[in-house]
Simulated scan of single mutants.
Amino acid sequence: MIITNVNLVLENEVVKGSLELRDGKIASMSDTPSQVSGAYDGENGLLMPGFIELHTDNLEHYFTPRPKVDWPPFSAMSAHDTQLVGSGITTVLDAVALGDFSDEKRKTDLDLFINTVVESQRRNLTRIDHRLHLRCEVPHASTLELFERFVDYPQVQLVSLMDHAPGQRQFVDVEKYRIYYQGKHNLSDSEMAAYESKQVALSQTYSEKHRNEICRQCHQRGISTASHDDATIEHVLESKQLGMTIAEFPTTVEAAKKSHELGLKVLMGAPNVVRGGSHSGNVAAHELASLGVLDILSSDYYPISLLEGVYKLAEDERNSLTLPQAVHLVTKNPAEVLKLNDRGLISEGKRADLVLARMVDGHPLVDRVWRQGKKVF
């Protein structure tokens, strides 16, 4: 098929022209409109590579749309998939939490969650490419065992290591930790104090041991690893020494700058960009973009934020990002870090995973999505 009358977001420029797709790949490009009868008219929209999402917890919301409500798994998967494709995402790593089972439902749903992703792909039930991201909460006794149970699934593309114990990383400010978890679990002051003490003890017992062993096994298998919430230079040096390739949600400028300097790709949340800052009081993504140390955006908990985040960063005069560079944050850069060399750019021979977007009343909206040349939205 041919897509014509579009603004092609290429690696280093935006070109008005047309695109020919054949056998699921980009066959050729032109900087002139196509005269072929039946070509799809993009009506001057913006044609980008399909977005690649590395970290989203979105599927959990569909499995349990309300407390004590279980939704049929393949129906939940279909609803999740539909929201993602409608947000321009064509490749996603669905994140699964291992070890942190303060919410008992996460534990009981774990196998169901993972098997639904695996079976949906095997039976071709989804519109986009779903893979797995194992989020390993390292300060828990069961984390390593669960990691070893799932790590050899071929869908596993990324493993991140996180420690949410109070007083460090995301929760350097212990008061913010108390506000978040006391409200989440409805704890009294005395119960909250006991909960804090337990999390600190677990971190001291398991965190370093699990972090080292999980990284060792990932490197043996060639699986990419990510740090999470690095806050200090020491955190970053440890991540580099362990061979990690992504710095997820660094909480300070110094941690982000050091990660970037050492070659770790700095990943921040697109909701942070859309909202203008972090909801937990940490560093703002737009500040890292202005410093030239922002490499990847993740939608985290709100899929459409990828598209909105790209537009906001490209229009933000506080940084020097061009539109192609902003688009790289959700296409080329995540593809490279996962070694998905067949996608992430509009280029001859690449997969025809494409997003057509346009502005409506000042807001970017997804108009069409193709996966391997097939229209899926």
Rank of each mutant, 00 (worst) to 15 (best):
K339M: 15
L323R: 01
G42I: 07
S34Y: 11
W71V: 05
E254P: 02
V156P: 09
V96Q: 01
T4D: 13
Q121P: 11
Y181K: 00
S190F: 11
S278L: 03
A314K: 05
R211G: 07
L365A: 09
S120T: 04
I233K: 11
K375T: 04
V138A: 06
V159R: 03
F147Y: 09
E148G: 12
Y206N: 14
A97H: 08
P33A: 01
W71S: 05
T64V: 07
K16S: 15
V118R: 03
D23A: 13
N58R: 13
V337T: 14
V266N: 15
G362M: 04
A270R: 07
S87G: 06
S320E: 01
L93Y: 10
N186T: 14
P303E: 02
F147E: 05
T251R: 01
T91D: 03
I246V: 13
D342Y: 14
V310D: 03
S290A: 13
R371C: 03
E317V: 08
N44K: 14
R131D: 14
A194K: 15
K107G: 11
V283N: 15
A289I: 08
M77P: 11
P154M: 05
S102A: 02
A76N: 09
N58P: 07
E317N: 13
Q217C: 15
E308L: 01
L187P: 13
M359F: 07
T90I: 03
R178G: 00
E234A: 14
L321K: 02
M268F: 15
G309I: 13
Y302P: 06
E261G: 10
L158E: 04
K240P: 15
T82Y: 11
V151M: 03
Q220S: 13
P65I: 03
P49C: 01
G99Y: 08
D173L: 01
H235G: 01
C218H: 04
V172A: 08
E43S: 13
L242H: 14
D31K: 05
G263Q: 09
F150P: 09
R22K: 10
L110V: 02
G373H: 01
I52V: 00
M268V: 05
G222T: 12
P154D: 07
N58I: 04
D57A: 07
L267F: 12
G17W: 14
A231R: 02
E238I: 05
G373T: 14
F249C: 08
G263K: 11
V151L: 12
Y62S: 01
P33H: 03
H164N: 11
S87H: 04
Q121T: 00
M359T: 11
Y180D: 12
S28R: 15
D367Y: 09
V69T: 13
L84P: 12
R211V: 00
F147P: 11
V96K: 10
D189N: 07
N212P: 09
G276L: 09
R368C: 00
V376I: 07
Q83G: 12
C215Y: 05
L161G: 06
V6L: 04
V85N: 03
E175H: 10
L294Y: 08
P154W: 02
H130M: 09
P324V: 08
A270T: 11
C218T: 06
G243P: 14
D229R: 05
T251P: 08
L84G: 08
I296H: 13
R127S: 08
I3A: 09
K257T: 10
K339C: 15
